[in-house]
């Protein structure tokens, strides 16, 4: 495997303002400015995080709720901006964050293929060419012409997964999505993802399922309160992580 760096995170910090009361109207804001009462509580969701991911590495991000896992994936995906430090990435990135989040509920499945595909940056011609493949993989059949608001959450996720995994990405971001749909579809989606693995796709993976993490990943980063606790081979890190959580 080549040693090309796919993701490089340097001294990453993400700060949120937690204003004690939410001020979202102009009057209140002006009154508070005059009275000098704009108080913010600062909260660092991530601080001083640095790591590099080489091509073909499959990295699990471990941590309890609120450790900063999702924030980190969002920064890498480009949805959230870093407050300090930098994030560099190369190649095509496909985020499987929440499947079907970009769907318009009033649009039919077929129309949403073009809309969601466009959001991921695919051209119309490409989507037209792949249309049949997407419909076939999602197994939606005639439901593809029904508005998405009438879909079950499983159907939505199936369609989202089918569109998002159209291209072979260089970097794949998975956030608890390997449990979509029914058992049959899950097997199928796992197969597709494993295919990508074998082609050398770099993976960032968030899951609370440690067995899955051990079987899929090669490396793990353990986050706690926005800081890296441990970074190393998956077996060791997962073991240490498990030990702390079972200790309570």
């Amino acid at each position: 495997m080549s040693e090309k760096t796919m993701v490089s995170v340097r001294d990453l910090g993400v700060k949120f303002h937690l204003s004690e009361q939410k001020v979202d109207n102009l009057k209140e804001y002006i009154i508070r400015i005059i009275k000098r009462q704009m108080r913010y509580k600062e909260f660092w969701a991530l601080r001083e995080v640095s790591f590099e991911v080489k091509q073909g590495e499959r990295v699990a991000i471990l941590g309890l709720n609120g450790a900063g896992k999702s924030t980190m994936l969002k920064v890498i995906a480009g949805v959230l901006k870093a407050t300090e430090g930098s994030v560099k990435r190369s190649g095509v990135l496909v985020p499987l964050l929440e499947l079907g989040a970009g769907f318009d509920p009033q649009y039919t499945g077929a129309e949403n293929i073009y809309l969601y595909g466009a959001m991921l940056g695919y051209s119309k011609a490409f989507l037209k060419e792949k249309y049949d493949e997407i419909v076939a993989f999602s197994e939606l059949g005639d439901f593809i012409h029904v508005p998405v608001k009438n879909y079950s959450s499983g159907m939505r996720a199936r369609l989202g997964f089918s569109i998002a995994t159209l291209v072979e990405p260089d970097i794949l971001i998975l956030d608890e999505v390997l449990s979509v749909g029914d058992a049959k579809f899950r097997a199928k989606s796992e197969k597709r993802i494993k295919e990508m693995f074998s082609k050398g796709t770099t993976v960032l993976f968030v899951s609370h399922n440690l067995a899955q993490v051990r079987s899929l990943c090669t490396r793990a980063i353990w986050l706690e309160k926005g800081h890296v606790v441990e970074d190393g081979p998956v077996a060791e890190v997962a073991e240490h992580f498990e030990a702390t959580i079972t200790k309570g």
């Binding site: 318009d104 009033q106 649009y107 809309l115 466009a118 940056g121 051209s123 119309k124």
Partner: peptide, 20 residues
């Protein structure tokens, strides 16, 4: 240029849904 297709899709969506 990369997201030109998205702009077209969003405009289409607005018009289509308005009169659906």
């Amino acid at each position: 240029n990369k997201y030109r297709n998205l702009l077209v899709e969003l405009v289409k969506k607005d018009i289509k849904l308005k009169y659906r």
